[in-house]
Amino acid sequence: MIEKVQFRNFKAYRSLDLELEPFTVLVGPNASGKTTLLEGLSLLSTIASNLLGEDWNHWPGPFVQSHGAQSPVEIGASGEWGGTNGSVRAVSPAVRIPHGPPYLPFVLNGSVADKPFKVGRENIGLSPRASSSENAPRVGGVHGNVERWLLNHLRAELSATSILRFVPKVLAMASYSDEVVPSLAPDGSGLSSVLAYFKLSQDEVFSEIEQALKQIVPAVRRIRIERAAVEQTAVRTIALDDQRHEVPEKRTLWGNQVVFDMKGAKGVAPDSAGEGTLMVLGLLTALMGPSKPRLVLLDDIELSLHPAAQARLIAALRAIQKRDPQLQIIATSHSPFILNDLDPKEVRMTFLADNGFARCEKLTAHPEFEKWKGLMAPGEFWSSVGEDWIGKLGGTAPNE
């Protein structure tokens, strides 16, 4: 579980040092750095998963350096994962290749169980005359006196990160999977296949998901899985006159479709059940599904729900975390109703300064918080004070 994050020269965050809770919600104006923070943690997971799992010199990542910055990009996190303390820091200078867009060669360093390690070379750099072959990752390996099983443990914990950006119409689609254990994509594709797998192979999990959905959306009476046609386009290779041709070929497969029995209506199609219902079902499936994420990064946790349902959602998420104490949820929101069901220490506020860089502060850091905390719920306090106070803190705040 991540306890602290540190960004340097990552997109809108020139410098960020932030503590996180097991359940943390980011609020603030649009384009103020909320989603950027989620993206940074997701990128760190990707870098760590690849560099700790392969003998690579570096990991070629996207160009995410802050505008105008000359210093290296750093994305770091520290905490306790599965009972073992550790820290990871992905570092990359800006590297521009002669032909093509710039990219960042990330290397990794950190510690696990107080034993330091490093993956890759931090002095990677390319001259203007460098060849394209020099841009590829080269064998490097892990350096440090750390047992391999500890690194594998850290990699497994950091890899179990899911960033969710559900699209209602995608969640509603019928799906087909030839995987032994179907997976749910970040946009929600594959939902029907995952639920069908649960219904057939882990009916108790399916029942838990169904019961949790009924608690949050009382109009739902039952979730049913039906067979449905799924159109797919495959590419077939044809050899003709010693030449190979790729021909797109449409085919119809029989997959699965989610159907709801609602209060007063049976057999309701998913695209008629409401966006909020679908989004909650997707979230519950992601949290309780086969992948068992350790860190869930969720954009817009209110999920198009009624304010009363938002409160029930928070209660359901806390119940899931109680059963799974190692699950961490970091979400963004624009809803004061979500905040009203949080502890003030779980709220972080983002603000875009006049110089174009983002800042992030605890709600409890507001100068008047101690005065008003007993009179207002967190959502009411946020609605009253907004975020401009962050820009008035003065000095060179570490979160700027």
Rank of each mutant, 00 (worst) to 15 (best):
L158W: 00
P344S: 11
P60F: 06
A315R: 12
L184Y: 07
G267R: 12
G61A: 02
I2E: 00
E246H: 11
K4R: 15
V180L: 14
V220S: 09
A273M: 02
L240K: 15
R89I: 04
L281N: 10
G141Y: 00
K322G: 04
A196I: 08
M279C: 06
L150V: 02
R138P: 00
V180W: 03
G76T: 02
I320E: 04
S183R: 13
P344T: 11
L108S: 00
Q211K: 15
P128K: 09
F369P: 03
D341K: 14
M349Q: 13
Q70S: 15
G144C: 13
E380V: 12
I209Y: 02
I329W: 01
K392P: 00
W372N: 05
A273V: 09
K115E: 14
A69L: 02
F106L: 02
I238H: 11
E134Y: 05
A365D: 13
V217P: 01
W382K: 03
G33W: 04
N145I: 06
E204V: 12
S32L: 09
G255P: 10
S384D: 11
E231K: 13
E21W: 00
Q326P: 01
G267M: 08
P60D: 07
M1P: 11
R89D: 00
T35R: 03
V146M: 05
K371L: 12
P270S: 07
V27P: 04
S384T: 15
V142M: 02
G61N: 02
M262E: 12
S384W: 13
N145F: 10
L327R: 09
D261H: 08
G379M: 07
G386Q: 12
L26G: 06
S66L: 05
E208N: 10
A358L: 06
V91C: 01
A358S: 15
A185F: 10
K169H: 14
T237C: 01
A219R: 14
R227L: 12
S384A: 15
K11N: 07
T237F: 10
P22A: 13
W382V: 14
R251N: 09
E370V: 04
V247M: 12
S335N: 04
A286Y: 03
E122T: 09
S162Y: 01
A219P: 04
F166E: 02
T237D: 06
P290Y: 07
F23N: 08
E249N: 11
E19M: 05
G190M: 06
H334N: 12
V170Y: 03
H245G: 01
R224G: 08
L26R: 03
R312I: 03
K214A: 09
A273T: 05
P344I: 09
